[in-house]
């Protein structure tokens, strides 16, 4: 890891894209990393193939999304992946991320989802206990609420349940409005994340006023070159059981 305290945003984003591509490969049952068709492969200068830690920020950021494909497809998590996950958490412990009080609870919930997902592969992570989810239970506008839910999208996986999920089930229309708002603002990252919740609700049989399949396809075609976004749409599709190319 570099020591100079310059912003590593570009390097870390590239790491997220690499890890997302690998997860996508697992989900789509393809050997190796998937780079969605038509997207430029990650700039090789950004990834040092000899740095075993280069992907750790990506693993730490994606959390449960990096491992969800193994859960969804029922494939084992390779030992090196499990070890890397643990190292990512030890390199970036939850209490050092420096999130503001307004957002720290989001990280706590995401880490909870990651820990719960890794439990399935026999890996224990020491993460703080999340609260009661009051932040998504307050009365607020559907606009702000749906963005919060986007930030919690890595919780939207089968097998995870809690107060955040209960809030999602109670507010299917707000999620649907939120995803349409994000689509029209052409904020496809946010749209894909909210769609994750709609997919989970669809799998649970909760009625939604939206047809998800064309929306996910649209995000993939219009959403720019983010592998992370494609991963979100593919997880969503897998969760609803809508599988197509």
């Amino acid at each position: 890891m570099p020591f100079a305290d310059t912003s590593p945003h570009e390097d870390y984003t590239a790491a997220v894209e690499r890890v997302a591509g690998r997860a996508l490969g697992v989900l789509m049952d393809v050997e190796g990393t998937v780079v969605p068709a038509g997207f430029a492969p990650a700039d090789p200068r950004l990834a040092d193939p000899h740095d075993p830690d280069a992907d750790l920020p990506g693993l730490r950021v994606l959390g449960s999304d990096a491992f969800a494909p193994h859960v969804l497809r029922g494939t084992p998590l390779p030992a090196d992946q499990a070890e890397a996950a643990a190292r990512a958490f030890s390199l970036f412990p939850p209490d050092t991320l420096g999130a503001s009080p307004e957002t720290a609870w989001i990280i706590t919930w995401r880490d909870w989802a990651t820990a719960r997902t890794l439990t399935r592969f026999g890996l224990a992570l020491d993460v703080p206990l999340p609260g009661d989810g009051a932040q998504v239970a307050d009365a607020t506008t559907w606009q702000a609420w749906s963005v919060r839910m986007a930030q919690l999208s890595s919780l939207a996986l089968p097998g995870l349940d809690g107060p955040i999920h209960a809030a999602a089930r109670r507010n299917a229309d707000s999620l649907a409005r939120g995803v349409v708002r994000a689509m029209l603002r052409r904020d496809y990252r946010t749209a894909a994340r909210i769609a994750r919740w709609l997919a989970l609700l669809a799998a649970d049989g909760v009625d939604s006023p939206l047809e998800l399949d064309p929306l996910l396809r649209h995000v993939r075609l219009f959403g720019g070159g983010s592998t992370r976004t494609v991963l979100d749409t593919r997880i969503a599709q897998h969760v609803t059981g809508l599988e197509e190319s």
């Binding site: 945003h9 190292r87 050092t96 989001i106 930030q151 603002r185 904020d187 990252r189």
Partner: peptide
């Protein structure tokens, strides 16, 4: 591993939390 700097940790948090875009392209 080498300890991370606050900026590196903050970048991870930013990428985890991902705010919505500030400018709408409606």
């Amino acid at each position: 591993s080498a300890p991370v700097t606050p900026t590196q940790a903050g970048t991870v948090a930013t990428l985890m939390i991902e705010e919505e875009t500030t400018i709408s392209d409606a």
